[in-house]
Write a protein that binds this DNA or RNA. Structure first.
Length: 405
DNA sequence: GTCAATTCACATGAAAGAGACCACGGTCTAGTG
DNA sequence: CTAGACCGTGGTCTCTTTCATGTGAATTGACGA
């Protein structure tokens, strides 16, 4: 047995890899050149430049859909600035926080605590009043004369969860600082996000705005070409592969990250099959695999109650005959859900909560829901499964097993 | 037939509770010199 | 005398319940032609 394993690894090592530098296809890779984003970078640089003279730069707001290079460009620019600042001994600091990550920066307390931590303060995870955390943070900044630029990625998530008070406090902080200055760069996927902001916050946060338009298919092709040249060994790509990737991604609002992922996963598939060439079919397989992984991953990490609700939806839609196109409503799901709860020995949640859970599942793209009115017969959600038919049995198994039903 | 009122079955919002986690300060206890 | 154990208080955070309000069109029923 161990012989077998050994020789497997030996062979694996001997096999020449498709990839020369797989990193070039990964999400966090920062290329030297960012094509089609010269204007945006220039704009960002212009806004931030005063920081090098220890003047407070304007707050900046960056919009654009996912995978349009927002984060990349901001990082690119700020890193370059940081280098310059370091060389010239300028007290300039960047703090990058992604508000999306749970338990890092998704509440006011945690955000400020994390900021303080980035500045080297020891801050407890919880237990202190938020006010206290602010004081610690302020004191830490104001130790010396410096400019601090806080980059809040996916800021819309933060505001959606906790309201815009944080941003108000953050942008207003300068009035309490004596020696140092703070600027905020907000990055958002949501284009209409600022509409929900308090006007005061809105005007102070978006003193300057940069918009990132989606890439079109041609631009995506160029990007993919550049990266794949870096990533893959010489001509392993079949003709048309790049074009297909680009087309897939362009369909999804020009998401370059997705296009690169598609290419990378396709490469991994070929490698696993010990193939030599990456062909157009591999892109299809890759697309399928990504979708499958995404769905199954999302499902298996759901908490028990969500799983129960999903299981109820699943069995309801299977009972209804084929592929759940028939209408399922919240009330029906709730009844079935209660049944499963008693079978699984779990106390059922209220309908109010289950309604929210259904909305959450919708957000995850596992189901699709639409609020409809059935006139005299009330208003409800029409629910149907959004997972591909081929995944339904597998999903069912996962749920059944983890709920021990 | 027309039109406003009614009605249903939830959706959606707001507030508040439960329980887990944690920090901090005060008090108690046991070990040390 | 002091370090550490052990409370009690007060804080955050997540998940949930409770209570309240909103809602869109099928249905109803009064009305008039």
């Amino acid at each position: 047995m161990s012989k077998k394993i050994d020789s497997f690894f030996e062979n694996y090592l001997k096999k020449s890899s498709m990839f020369v530098n797989k990193k070039a296809l990964q999400g966090n890779y920062v290329p030297k050149e960012i094509p089609y984003r010269e204007k945006q970078i220039e704009h960002i640089a212009n806004v931030l430049a005063p920081a090098l003279r220890l003047e407070k730069p304007s707050n900046l707001f960056v919009y654009g859909k996912t995978g349009t290079g927002k984060t990349l460009c901001v990082k690119h620019t700020t890193e370059a600035m940081f280098e310059i600042a370091r060389k010239n001994n300028i007290e300039l600091k960047f703090i990058y926080l992604n508000c999306k990550f749970k338990r890092v920066a998704d509440t006011e307390y945690r955000l400020v605590a994390q900021l303080a931590r980035e500045l080297g303060e020891e801050v407890p995870v919880t237990g202190l009043p938020t006010e206290e955390i602010y004081k610690i943070f302020l004191a830490s900044i104001d130790k010396k004369e410096q400019v601090i630029i806080i980059i809040l990625d996916e800021i819309d998530q933060l505001v959606k969860k906790t309201g815009d008070e944080i941003l108000y406090n953050l942008t207003r902080m300068n009035s309490e600082l004596v020696k140092s200055q703070v600027s905020v760069i907000g990055i958002s996927n949501d284009l209409v996000f600022t509409d929900v902001l308090d006007p005061r916050v809105k005007s102070s946060l978006s003193e300057e705005e940069v918009v990132f338009p989606p890439y079109n298919a041609i631009q995506l092709q160029k990007i993919l070409k550049e990266r794949s040249d870096l990533a893959f060994r010489g001509n392993v790509l079949d003709a048309g592969v790049i074009e297909k990737c680009a087309a897939y991604a362009a369909r999804e609002h020009g998401d370059a990250r997705r296009a690169l992922e598609l290419l990378r996963v396709a490469g991994e598939i070929v490698e696993r099959q010990s193939g030599e060439k990456l062909s157009v079919e591999h892109i299809d397989l890759s697309e399928e695999k990504i979708e499958k992984d995404r769905v199954l991953e999302a499902i298996s990490v759901q908490p028990k109650q969500s799983k129960l609700a999903l299981f109820a939806i699943l069995s309801k839609s299977m009972n209804n005959g084929n592929n759940g196109i028939d209408h399922i409503f919240t009330g029906d799901v709730y009844d079935v859900y209660k049944d499963y709860c008693s079978k699984a020995g779990v106390r059922p949640l209220t309908q109010r909560r289950v309604s929210d859970i259904i909305a959450e599942l919708d957000m995850l793209g596992i189901i699709n829901t639409k609020v409809i009115s059935k006139g005299r017969y009330g208003r409800t959600r029409e629910i149907c499964l959004a997972i591909p038919n081929s995944l339904v049995p597998k999903t069912n198994d996962i749920l059944r097993e983890s709920l021990s039903l």
